[in-house]
Each structure stands twice: as C-alpha cells, then as structure tokens.
Design a protein around this nucleic acid. Structure first.
Lengths: 251, 251
DNA sequence: CGTTCCCTTGAGACCGCTCAAAGACCGTGG
DNA sequence: CCACGGTCTTTGAGCGGTCTCAAGGGAACG
C-alpha cells in the first residue's frame, strides 16, 4: 500500500511495443520523437501498490505502458470506495487531476505496472507547439467522457445483474483491444471487491450474481482468468449496446 | 418534443452578458473576436423541446447562452433514461459527441434556451490557430470529467437520501455560480422525474425522500423554486465534500 | 502449518421498487 | 366563468433486490 518506485528507465517511444497494435493510430517518426522529448520518465509499481494517494496533489500525466491499475474516490468520512475507471496498456490518464482543485482521487496498481509520465507543467508547451498532439489529447479526453457516461448509465439504470455482466464484458473487450486476450480468455487481476466497488454493489451480492452468470454458461472465472464462453450472450445479459473498437491515438 | 428552431440571431460575443460574471475568466478582445468568428449561429428551444434526438448524428459544439437543458442516454430496448448532466448558462457542451461513434444521447430543453453553436468540423482549425482556446477547451473537458467522477461517486456510493440532497445542493450551487440565485432561492425548472432519472431512483422514492429533506428544514420547494433554507445542513445531508467555485474559461 | 487474503454460502433486515389512486396545478376551450 | 384534460406531485401498500452480519472453505505464502 506504499509508494513503490524502483528506478528510472528508458523505454524509447520509437520502440514502444504498444505502437505495433492495430488499435492505435499511426504516428509519424517526428511526432513520436516529440513525445519522447516530452516524456519525463517511467514509474513502476507492484500489485497493491499505490501510485497516487488520495488527496496527494498530482502533477503528472501518464500513459500506461504495461499492467492494470485503477483510479478511485472515497466518500468523505466513510470507507465506501468508488472505482472510477481502470487503466490498461495504452490508456492516457491524469488530465482531470491537473486542475488546481484539491478534490482527491487515488490510483492503485493491480499488477506489475509501468507508466510513462509527463510533467503537467509542460502541458501548455505542448498546446503551443504541437496542435496535432494537443488535439489527440483532447480527443482522448472526450472519449474518456463517453466512457464515463456509459458508466453513469450502468450505475443509474442497469440492474445489479446487468451491471456485473456489463462490466465483465467491458473489461474483456478492453483487454482484447490491446492484445491481452488469448482465445476469449484474459487474465483478470481484479478481485470481486473491485468489481463491487466499481458497480456500487456489495461484495456478497456481487459474488452471488457472478454465480448466476456462471450458471448461465456465459462466462467462467478460474485461476485469475476470465473465460468468455459466450460473448454474444454476455453482451445481452449486460445490455451492451453498439460499441465497436475505434482506432485511437497513443501518447 | 420536436425540433423547435425559431430564427438565427446575432448576439455579439463582445457584448455577451455572461462575460460580466465573476465566475468566468477574463479574455482579451482579440480572443473574443476569434470566438465570434468561430461562432456559427444561435439556436432556440422552448421547454420540453428536443435540441438533439438520440441517435441523431451531432456535428455541433455549443455554449449555453441562457436557460437550462439536460443531456441523457437511454438503455437500449428499455424506457429507462439516465440524465447525464445539466447545461446551464456558460456551459460548453458537445465535445464527447464529436467522435465518429454512433453511440447516442439526447438533449432536451427545460426552459427557454439559447445556445451559441460552432461547427465541429472547424475544431481542428481552432487547435491549429489558437493554442489558448484549445487549451481552454481541454481544461473544460477535464473539468467535465471531474464532474462525471463526482456523479459516479454519487450513484455508486451515496444512499438514496444522500443522492437527493447532493443533487439539490449541486444544482443550487451551479445556478448560483452563474448568478441565477437570489437570496438562497433559485428557479428550479427540473421535475421530480428528472431528479429521479439523474439519480437512478424511482419517481416515488425520490418524492418521499424530498419530503424527508423538507421536514428536516434544509430546503423547501414551492412554485418551481428551490429554497435552500440551511445550506450547511443540506451539504452535510448530501455528504458534499470540498468544492469551491473556480473561475473558468468561457467559449 | 499458521496466517492472510479471497471466495462462497446462509439468514434476516431494510431500502427502494412497482402498482395504484387521489390531489394539485395549469392552460385551453366551451 | 367553469369544465376539462394533461402534467406533476403526493400518499399508501406490498414485494423483492440488495444489504449487513456471520461463518466456513480454499489457496497462497512465509
């Protein structure tokens, strides 16, 4: 639960393995070089480690290079935690934290995690120098907003059962997008408590709901892995709408 | 419920009454002129009119000039509606809709509404020409994200009672920020059904919860107006955290 | 081999839901 | 001026989804 930094390192953006993935848009060598110059370093954390404490001021933007993490907020004077979103490889995070507003959130690693970070006080420089990259960043922020809206729809309108099914599919789909799926199976470093905290359900109820979805044969969970046995069925159960995977920029 | 356009008009950005408000950052005359040139027109709608149908492609960004509106999404194959957020004077909206993704949302007016709109296909132009304005737009997007996160916290972790209290305070606070409050009273064009659809509660339960908060003396609602009789108490009931009003850009 | 974390299951309570109906308010037209 | 229909609010009654409390089992790890 403590900050767990190992050492600075030097993965070159030009050699970034994420850029090979279909899901990310192509970028010119010049743009990648600009990003490289913008990159301030890397940070590492192991499972359960806190990358950012709640209420700690954050001055960093980052892209997840590898691993899973999640961002959460806690209701003041309560131990009830709401998981806001998950970070998977290629996800750009931290923009909302750059506003000079003390409202807190925390970030915690679920697996071994590497992030490439940027200093937020150079953000203006990026906007002044490089319209394409700033446009991309805004595009990603807008995409993030859509994702939050979908999550609002989930919390507000889906039943407990639908919520669990939806989230399982959502996590599977996102992992698949970045090449983490093998034959409809992904490693799922998320505990049932995390699912519960994401969905506004209790741990017990989440567990019982998972059993039901299992019994329907849509999924199975064994040895930290999620098996999507019937994706179409799972999508129905979660009332998943359109959602095709769109190519997106990588920063 | 139908599109209700009256006529194009010509409020000049330099004379925009919103710019007088404390809450908005000062802008140079040059920047305001640029915004003026970027503005494509105005649109009007009366209470209950639909500014944007669900699943209708949207190519417009806009700033609310006057009035209240709300944005919602509906769960596919269901009549359950989730209100995503409300638009008050000065709010910039539509960025998340510019992604070429058919995922639908609707926008509806609660009062007489005037919006200043921009064509989204000139968005790139703005990023190329004017780093300050594009930075501001991104800042607003990030702020919007925070607001969504707060709403996720509400839906996921606050009790029904807390949700209602929180939302009432939130709407009051936002209205006050843009000068719509007189002595702790605001006009509240929102129906109980809207509150319910925002909070993921049923209409009946929302109503009963409102009664309770009324009985505690924190608020009263009469003749379409919300009276905040004890703001500190209301904030406690809704577990409202920090939240000071920050000056923000106006586009 | 004990500790710890996580998953699972049962039992009872309660929050919030649905169904139903009546009252309040408002604009419209006879 | 009143009757009327529509929208919104209020209230009651009963059901069920989800919660909390509690306890047991399994796997990983030192």
């Amino acid at each position: 639960m403590t900050r767990d930094i190992i050492a600075p390192s030097t993965t070159l953006c030009l050699q970034c393995p994420l850029r090979e993935l279909e899901i990310f848009r192509h970028r010119s060598r010049a743009d990648v070089s600009y990003i490289q110059a913008f990159k301030a370093g890397e940070e590492y954390a192991g499972p359960g480690a806190t990358l950012l404490h709640e209420n700690e001021p954050n001055t960093r933007l980052f892209t997840v290079l590898s691993g899973w993490l999640f961002r959460y907020r806690t209701l003041e004077g309560s131990h009830r935690r709401q998981i806001i979103n998950y970070g998977l490889p290629g996800d750009f995070m931290g923009l909302q934290a750059t506003l000079d507003d003390p409202m807190g959130h925390g970030i915690e690693a679920l697996t071994n995690v590497t992030v490439c970070y940027f200093e937020q006080d150079r953000l203006w420089e990026l906007f002044a120098d490089h319209p394409q990259l700033s446009f991309d960043m805004t595009w990603l922020a807008a995409q993030q907003e859509r994702s939050f809206e979908e999550q609002l729809l989930t919390l507000g309108q889906r039943t407990g059962f639908e919520r669990v099914a939806y989230l399982l599919w959502h996590l599977f789909d996102r992992a698949r997008d970045v090449g983490l799926a093998v034959d409809n199976v992904i490693e799922l470093p998320v505990r049932q408590q995390h699912l519960a905290d994401t969905l506004g359900l209790s741990l017990v109820h989440t567990n019982k709901t998972l059993q039901k979805i299992r019994e329907l044969g849509a999924i199975d969970i064994r040895e930290r892995c999620l098996y999507v046995l019937n994706e179409a069925h799972l999508r129905e159960l979660g009332r998943v709408d359109s959602s095709f995977s769109q190519r997106r920029p990588l920063l």
